[in-house]
Write a protein that binds this DNA or RNA. Structure first.
Lengths: 420, 420
DNA sequence: AGACTAATTTTAAGTCGCAAACTAAGGTCC
DNA sequence: GGACCTTAGTTTGCGACTTAAAATTAGTCT
């Protein structure tokens, strides 16, 4: 409630952050160009970049002719300033990947995960992170933080609390568990996997350049990451964006969440296959969800039943997307997730048509609907962006608190929420 | 795209704004208390408030004993610093109200409005504003701005463009039309009526103190104002929050927007009455929508049909609210609009139960569902808050551009978007 | 009246960004 | 090859800002 005070020190912090972020996203730039883009005077740019270079965050990267004058010296974020780790906790396994600051992958580990206690998962995460760091020959002290994407909602507070019904977690203090299981005191960032995947699409995929985007993710379940004004929208307790459990057919099919008529019950892989099974009147061939959905799409070329199920799916999905369009008025919709990409590849026209039929004309005219561009590693990459976002936001090593006294006074360790 | 530069001047502006806003919302406060709340040093508070007093924005307001020391001098926003006008453009008439800076109503005019051209409406607005100002004996030069709430979406840009299908407006540049029809050059703020009403509930009604709120408005149509992080959410082109036209029953009742199964077709007054008509099998007695809905609610005590229609309505409405809960994860839902208040008064328990049935447990547990507290003037009051918000945001007379050169350079006149 | 307390104001110091002057590093022209 | 131009980046001097500490002000208590 207390409005945040603004001191003269925040100026510099903010300008550091602005310049560092610009360098990060828009590649090597000269000081001159930085001045032009940020509106800051050349003098200030010179000062601030000087500091950033002294701190090792930024390095010079060659120079470029300048139409008959002193050549411009290019600056860029130092990829070797530090490393970040992204963890994707899935329902059947965990992925751990190590990146440098430019999010170039240096090493990756996969671990199968049989259902086990949160503490066991936490200690697996801790040891896998340590392994991936040592296996890449990276000095542990250069790791700036570890981002963890989990399949459930994450309450951000003094410590992150995870609710993930699909893996039986309810109120798991994952951040504490992992910290206890680790020897190193790397900052941990726990976030919903759909949100980390969305962030990855924003930074490196189909969301680049836009400020209002909804990334719709369809796999076995259905979720969404809502980006408003360039930042992932979290709501009051970080569980915003539960698109899969919005009602699209009042009184309709039962959903695994217990309610009736959720979107997920119609367009989630499980829902699609179940509808196909019913329409077909007999069991599907054996196989996991991904291959069954692929088989369904392939069958649509010959089978009227399969084609009709897919058409209906496109209709439901379009209506669901239209709801997002009407409520959030984004400039772009990104359709992702393995099932979303599969459906999109064969039914995008139909999906778009159904969206148009259900959305209001004005917000509909603003959007473009695109397929996601990132592969199955997007959750881990997105998780790894979390410590990077903290770095860009503070323009300083995220491991050192800006002002220890203040954070004690506030009671809650400050954590970045803006990401872009 | 260009990140905003921050200069040392912005510091003072921001601190002025912080202190002025604190005084506005939290009533008379001493400098000492301001220092405590803002975190600013006593010296800065003294400096800044001194300026604000010199500028006439703030006045002293008595003093309070201080347990045996120098008494605290209370400060408050000067209600007489200026006046603001709120206009509610409805489908059947316009309301124009004049307020002082503390949003105390000084005068009000109502005009019936038969369907007429946008230009005619604009000139009626212009003359009604002039009339209400002169009739209250207020000096025209003290009017800080005019807020206009309209029944449609408003694209905010260089000039506001209104799309309001219910009154036949499509792409009306209302701001320009009103400016042309006025002699005075008061700043105009055009905004969707649901959003202004939501803002009124946030400042003075059931939304006070919360930062993530959805104000659901049910009248003849259905809309919502979504407040995220204390500010009204607008989306990419300001048409966010079109809750009424989200699909809740795929393939269901036709809606006046042309789509099938919109929430509005089920819980908007028109939709309710139409469903009642069909359930009853014969025409309803003559009467306008408001009295017909009142009659329906009254009939529910005796008539099973009427009771069932209301129950069903509560069910649909609860599912619609649950969608808002799942997507936005607010801390509070405010149910408003004349039909919303009428339904809420008699069916709140049922609505809450239906919401619980359709929402995910975690976000559901965060919310409280309340009835709106403001009456039919809320749209006009909310419209009048727009120039006040601009004043608080800039902590300076909103009629004078902060820096004319800069706004020319930017191409677009800066307009406040944060409101709280 | 004098001591004491607590709210403001004044003062001195340090930070910040900016405009203008200045330096660096290259090219062009003769 | 040297005078001169062009463009990039740095240094300098200045005004604006916040802060901590000291001073002042305005009451209460004995």
């Amino acid at each position: 409630m207390a409005p945040k005070r603004t001191t003269v020190r925040d100026l510099r912090r903010q300008n550091r952050s602005t310049l560092l972020s610009t360098l990060f996203f828009d590649g090597p730039l000269s000081r001159y160009e930085l001045s032009r883009r940020s509106g800051l005077s050349a003098a200030t740019v010179s000062n601030v970049t000087g500091e950033l270079v002294d701190d090792g965050l930024v390095v010079e990267a060659g120079s470029v002719d300048s139409d008959g004058g002193r050549p411009r010296v290019l600056l860029r974020v130092n990829p070797a300033f530090g490393h970040v780790v992204g963890v994707d906790v899935g329902e059947t396994g965990i992925k751990v990947e190590l990146f440098d600051l430019s999010l170039t992958q240096l090493a990756a580990f996969d671990h199968a995960l049989s259902p086990s206690s949160p503490a066991a998962v936490a200690s697996l995460i801790a040891s896998a992170v340590r392994d991936v760091v040592t296996s890449a020959g990276v000095d542990a002290s250069t790791v700036l933080g570890v981002g963890i994407g989990v399949p459930g909602t994450v309450e951000q507070g003094a410590t992150a609390v995870v609710h993930a019904p699909t893996i039986g977690w309810d109120g798991v203090r994952l951040e504490e568990l992992v910290a206890d299981a680790s020897e190193s005191a790397w900052p941990l960032y726990v976030e919903n996997g759909a949100k980390t995947q969305g962030q990855a699409e924003m930074w490196f995929g189909a969301g680049r350049g836009a400020r209002h985007v909804v990334i719709a993710l369809i796999g076995s379940g259905v979720g969404a990451a809502v980006v408003t004004d360039g930042g992932v929208y979290r709501g009051a307790t970080s569980s915003a964006g539960e698109w899969g459990h919005t009602t699209i057919m009042y009184g309709g099919r039962p959903c695994r969440c217990g309610a009736l008529g959720c979107l997920e019950a119609y367009v989630g892989a499980e829902g699609i296959l179940d509808r196909y099974r019913k329409a077909r009147g007999r069991e599907l061939p054996e196989g996991d969800e991904q291959s069954s959905v692929a088989a369904l799409i392939e069958a649509a070329a010959r089978s009227k039943t399969a084609a009709r199920v897919l058409e209906e799916t496109a209709g439901y999905l379009g209506a669901g997307i239209a709801n997002l369009v009407n409520l959030f008025n984004p400039e772009r919709i990104v359709l992702g997730g393995w099932a979303g990409l599969a459906l999109g590849a064969h039914q995008l026209d139909r999906i778009v048509a159904a969206t148009r039929a259900h959305a209001l004309r004005h917000p509909y005219e603003q959007i473009s609907i695109q397929l996601g561009r990132l592969g199955p590693d997007a959750v881990a990459v997105g998780a790894a962006t979390l410590p990077v976002a903290a770095l860009l936001d503070r323009a300083a090593d995220p491991r050192k608190p800006t002002s220890p006294d203040l954070s004690v006074e506030l009671g809650v360790p400050e954590r970045s929420t803006r990401v872009f």
